[in-house]
């Protein structure tokens, strides 16, 4: 088995008549950290939502950990259980406490005994430093704490890949740091990560590669240092000059 954990070939996606993703080819190796950046509307969120099939692609193929994403729902659920995702709007379950948020999926999807699930959840909550909030409800926490809880919730499924969809865009500047710290720790622990973000500092610190997308296409893909030092395309140069 190759160590390519995600393989996307010739993938196209339309929303109605509008083509959001054009001819995407992307391979991600195990334990690599990849940052996807680009202007809004460039299709980066759609791309990573396709990876665990929250959006359907119409052409091409996506192979995650050896399984191709098809219509078959059983496979999709299996893949989703192996791919953790963190959303811009946190999307915690407001009717459950933080601890229950984290144990829900392990108990019901992975059939883990409740005790083990709670232990595991507390471990992960400890890692993102909100174990003391475990019995509160999401509505009682700050945005940064909620996002860290969302990371812990995804980790509790012990995924092989973590997808981050603009995890810090809905946060105050002060809270961005605590979430990024949690993500940096995760990266150092060797997780395969695909991160859509505008935090170039984070990209420089942890990313192995950076992908720049515009108008539904991958414009440039390069090693992090290379990407920031001498970007090849003009579009990338323009983008970097605007946000750096």
């Amino acid at each position: 088995m190759s160590d390519k954990i995600i393989q996307i070939t010739e993938m196209n996606k339309w929303f109605g008549d509008f083509q959001v993703l054009k001819n995407i080819n992307l391979e991600v190796e195990k334990n690599k950290k990849i940052v996807v950046c680009g202007p809004s509307g460039s299709g980066k969120s759609t791309l990573i939502r396709c990876i665990n099939r929250l959006e359907e692609h119409q052409q091409g193929s996506i192979i995650v950990d050896g399984n191709e994403l098809t219509e078959d729902t059983k496979d999709i659920e299996k893949i989703r259980a192996e791919v953790g995702m963190v959303f811009q709007q946190f999307n915690l379950f407001p009717h459950l406490s933080i601890l229950d948020n984290c144990t829900l999926a392990p108990i019901w999807v992975k059939k883990m005994p409740k005790k083990d699930a709670e232990e595991l959840a507390l471990q992960h909550l400890e890692k993102v430093q909100i174990a003391d909030q475990a019995n509160k409800y999401p509505g009682q926490l700050s945005g940064g704490q909620q996002q860290r809880c969302a990371i812990a919730r995804a980790l509790c499924m012990e995924p092989k890949i973590m997808l981050f969809d603009e995890p810090t865009s809905a946060l105050d500047p002060e809270m961005i740091k605590e979430v990024l710290d949690a993500m940096v720790n995760l990266a150092k622990a060797g997780m395969t990560m695909i991160v859509v973000t505008h935090e170039m500092g984070f990209a420089k610190e942890v990313a192995d590669e950076v992908i720049f997308m515009d108008e539904g296409m991958i414009v440039e893909r390069a090693e992090t240092k290379e990407f920031f030092a001498n970007p090849k395309s003009d579009r990338t140069k323009l983008f970097l000059s605007q946000i750096l």
Binding site: L54, T73, A81, G84, F87, F90, N91, A105, V109, A150
Partner: peptide
Amino acid sequence: RGQYDAAKSLGMGYWKMHILVILPQ
């Protein structure tokens, strides 16, 4: 919609998603 997305991304199927996440809310 995020609630559906979150439940799906954790690997829940239709019934688990509805019984555990959607319907209680």
